[in-house]
Write a protein that binds this DNA or RNA. Sequence first.
DNA 1: TCTGGGGTCCTAGGACCC
DNA 2: TCTGGGGTCCTAGGACCC
Length: 388
Amino acid sequence: MRYDVLVARWLLHVDLDQFQAAVEFRRHRELRGLPVIVGGNGDPAEPRKVVTCASYPARSFGVRAGMPLRQAARLCPDAIFLPLDMATYEEVSAEVMDLLRTFPVRVEVLGWDEAFLAADIDDPERLAREIRGAITELDLTCSIGIGDNKLRAKLATGFAKAVGKGVAAPGTGEAATGASGSGGAAPEPVTGDGPVPGAGTGIFRLTADNWSALMAGRPTSALWGIGSRIAKRLSELGIDTVAQLAAADRDRLAAAFGPSTGPYLWVLGHGAGDTDVVTAPHVPVGRSKSETFPRDLTDRAEIETQVARLATAVAEEVAADGRITTRVGVIVRTSTFFTRTKQRKLPAPTTDIAEIVHTALEVLGRFELDRPIRLLGVRLELVPLDPP
DNA sequence: TCTGGGGTCCTAGGACCC
DNA sequence: TCTGGGGTCCTAGGACCC
């Protein structure tokens, strides 16, 4: 397979708005404009299930992705709760990606509701408007960030997202809630000098020209790749803003974060980044299956049964994909939310489901298992595919 | 009201070998 | 009864992202 890595003039980041909720609105038009919350089995009373996507009206009640469903139900008692429907989201996502590929761009799929596009054109805003129009035809909406690299295009989308609809601009402190379609509280995207012109209109351009003006004063966590932990460690070094990160000493960052991560953080501060758009389908390096149980497990036999079940399920999926397993890992999370992993390399790569299950149980046997267990998981690492 | 599920990549330490 | 340094493989954990 040939990789398209031609230098592109513009990078576009296309991000579907409130994706899972929007998919539900497509088939339940009567729900449009209502507070809809998608997550779990659609039962707000179910413990240990969380919000995957909340419609904008639901967000106005403070409902956020990653929040327990029961909490969402308290914040927004009149919300309509719907179960996750992975198969449909996957179908709609493929429909959107196929549509994007009809434009004169190269498409790199980033998730169900996101893609990077590389375009060699003169007027990226015009292209973005055309794409938004086409997406509307699918009964969906999207925001589009335009940048001179992927990082800036991705961050531009944050400025593009509609203000006041529960979606934060970059740097408003709403880093990674851990779910797609997540949006934070919605303060005005400001730099300190007031609102950003053009923000919230669905399309926004962020390049070297306006990088400093828009990003310098924002917290480091506004950057794609800096989460709360690294932001905190940077803060301990006296680095709180993007401008301070850009001005930081690279050797100092390397000493604090490692020879690869340190300099990478410095690069992020400058807004530099990749421009490669890889159109080749993604080949996963591993596959896992995990489950948080409604009630903690304490019975050893039950724990073993569940691990065997998860191992069987994930091994069958891997086998169906024609992939070969090299390592078997087990994840155990206790009721205290302590998470531990152990893994073992197989003597030889295998497709044998019984051997994988047996190994998972062997790995499980190395855990203490002296506390109630809330989650079990099995992860398989796979032999890389031969290059075509 | 406690905190989902599925991924990727990086770092660090110990074992082992030369 | 010593001592070094490099390279690679393996595991555990951390951090981030959708």
